[in-house]
């Protein structure tokens, strides 16, 4: 394996008096697809919020290619090379599909792999609907826009928070079918899911979270169904 792109060490997070993360450690290798799975409230979204800088973290708790980025704000984290597909998609209703994609490139300075053309090749339906308001699309199409928007910054690391939530299985399969191409662009990927099936199919590595801690970590092929089941639900089978 190559050097880690993203390293998280002993990350804690609080909402007021409530502690949401308890010393989370995690590494993402170059080109890897990592699945973070866990039940509702396990701390997955908090982890995403911490990595993207929405939630402030200690400086050295998160490093990207050797650079400490824990203390950075959300725009600074994006500029450092991490972009996110937020839970619930969060398209901008005042912007058209194409504008939603373009705003993903707001902070971008140079050229990179992803262009509007490449995104439209990846998601052809968006080319047809590029002048529609983003929110006039179906849930699956909106998710494509949200993924495309995150790719437009040419991220080193792409975070996907619950992208299958509320979508039909066939739509989820289509969306995950694009991930190999996304990884070809050079982005390492973290997918956060409650829906284990799809996530495990594309992941090289899986981390299971429960109550703010990582309870299990390994390659999907090495882990037994029972071990994942235990780590996920916290009960011995």
């Amino acid at each position: 394996m190559s050097a880690p792109v993203l390293t998280i060490s002993n990350l804690t997070a609080h909402y007021g008096d409530f502690q949401a993360l308890f010393g989370v450690d995690l590494t993402l290798e170059q080109g890897q697809a990592l699945a973070v799975i866990g039940a509702n409230g396990a701390g997955k979204s908090t982890l995403m919020r911490a990595i993207t800088g929405i939630l402030p973290s200690p400086r050295d708790a998160i490093t990207l290619n050797g650079r400490a980025i824990g203390h950075l704000s959300a725009p600074e984290v994006l500029e450092a090379g991490i972009s996110m597909v937020p839970e619930g998609r969060k398209l901008f209703p005042s912007l058209s599909v194409e504008e939603n994609l373009l705003i993903g490139a707001h902070a971008r300075t140079g050229n990179g792999y992803w262009t509007l053309e490449r995104l439209y090749d990846l998601f052809p339906i968006l080319r047809e609907r590029r002048h529609n308001p983003g929110t006039a699309l179906s849930g699956g199409q909106q998710q494509m826009v949200a993924i495309g928007r995150a790719l437009m910054s040419n991220p080193t690391v792409l975070l996907c928070d619950e992208i299958s939530l509320g979508l039909a299985p066939v739509v989820i399969r289509d969306i995950y079918a694009t991930f190999p191409k996304i990884r070809e662009s050079g982005a390492s990927v973290i997918v956060v899911e409650q829906d284990i099936g799809q996530a495990l199919r594309i992941a090289d590595h899986v981390c299971c979270m429960m109550e703010g801690r990582i309870t299990l970590s390994g390659a999907p092929t090495d882990l037994s169904r029972d071990a994942i089941h235990n780590a996920y639900f916290g009960v011995s089978a």
Binding site: G53, A74, L78, S83, M84, K90, P93, L95, H106, R149
Partner: peptide
């Protein structure tokens, strides 16, 4: 104007 937090995720301050 739509959503300042998500705008932040796009690199907008």
């Amino acid at each position: 104007s739509d959503d300042a937090v998500t705008a932040g995720l796009m690199g907008i301050r």
